[in-house]
């Protein structure tokens, strides 16, 4: 039966190759390039931290990073709150439950490009919602956030919440359905109001579902790229730029590979710094 074990090794070859070459190899390569003076073509002249220093001084990078944190905080919290409200309400035995579920989840099946283009049209400052409000008599109404540098990031949050709230709802609804009916009865016997039961009994029991949802949302925050491309293309000016787009533009359009890889490496290190304690905490939680 030795051959079966050899077969098992062979079967894992693609995965091992991908892990070694693509995941480890390219990551190391990217970090290495970030210390060279590569511009359009790769170069092996080491320049130390120069790319990182010019990154810190790059206004567009600073805007991108700030945007990512603002977007991430608002998007994750809004999607969690809205998703939880929807899940809790749907769990209260409403009529047409599956219709509601379908309506809340369908945006998640579509791409960020479609999402971005749809919202870009809705929020169009001349023909979109503003014109609609004027048409029904609210001539004082102004909604030009899509073209206002200080507000544009909130329009991305709006579109992203529309896209992902259903995902949170689906995950939390599965969690709610896993809660024992006895808990509700016990709470009712104790005379606990429904809203109190949700806050002090149900919410703590959904910690795992919330963690899963947060993780998925956080991953999409870090990868945020398509939505910004489709909705605003980073504009007006650089007001809605995000780190992933900064890297892509400097790799392929601005031909500054050194700066782009320095930015990518910074993203990687930040994520490891955030994820490592989280993973550690999870592992500890599992052991106890």
């Amino acid at each position: 039966m030795k051959s079966s074990h050899i077969n098992a090794q062979i079967a894992l070859l693609p995965a091992i190759l991908i892990a070694l070459v693509v995941y480890c190899g390219t990551t190391g390569w990217t970090i290495w390039i970030s210390f060279t003076n590569s511009r359009m073509l790769p170069s092996s002249v080491m320049v130390g931290w120069r790319n990182y220093l010019s990154l810190i001084g790059n206004e567009r990078w600073v805007v991108s990073v700030t945007n990512l944190f603002v977007f991430g905080a608002l998007f994750i919290s809004a999607a969690l709150v809205l998703g939880f409200l929807l899940a809790a309400m749907i769990d209260r035995h409403v009529r047409a439950e599956s219709l509601f579920r379908s309506v809340f989840l369908y945006p998640f099946s579509m791409s960020f490009i479609v999402t971005g283009l749809a919202w870009r049209w809705l929020l169009d400052p001349t023909l979109g919602i503003e014109k609609l409000a004027h048409a029904i008599g609210f001539s004082w109404f102004h909604f030009d956030w899509l073209v206002r540098p200080d507000r544009v990031i909130y329009t991305l949050v709006l579109a992203a919440v529309w896209h992902a709230a259903g995902l949170v709802m689906a995950i939390l609804l599965a969690g709610l359905r896993g809660i024992d009916g006895e808990i509700w009865k016990a709470a009712r016997v104790d005379g606990l109001p429904v809203w109190r039961t949700y806050i002090s009994v149900i919410l703590p029991m959904l910690t795992g579902s919330f963690a899963t949802a947060t993780l998925l949302l956080a991953t999409s925050v870090v990868r945020l790229y398509d939505l910004s491309v489709a909705m605003t293309n980073g504009g007006p000016g650089v007001a809605s730029e995000v780190p992933a787009k900064f890297v892509m533009d400097h790799l392929f359009e601005r031909a500054n590979v050194g700066l782009a890889t320095a930015a990518a490496s910074t993203m990687l290190v930040t994520i490891v710094a955030v994820a490592a304690p989280w993973l550690y905490y999870q592992q500890r939680g599992r052991r106890t």
Binding site: A19, V22, Y23, G25, T26, T27, W29, T30, I33, L215, A218, T219, V222, R223, P243, A244, V247, M248, L251, V257, A260, T261, A263, A264, S265, M267, L268, I271, A275
Partner: peptide, 13 residues
């Protein structure tokens, strides 16, 4: 890898 941004892999790939 499920959490790492794709931008880290793209140029070497």
């Amino acid at each position: 890898v499920a959490f790492v941004p794709y931008q880290v892999f793209i140029y070497p790939l």
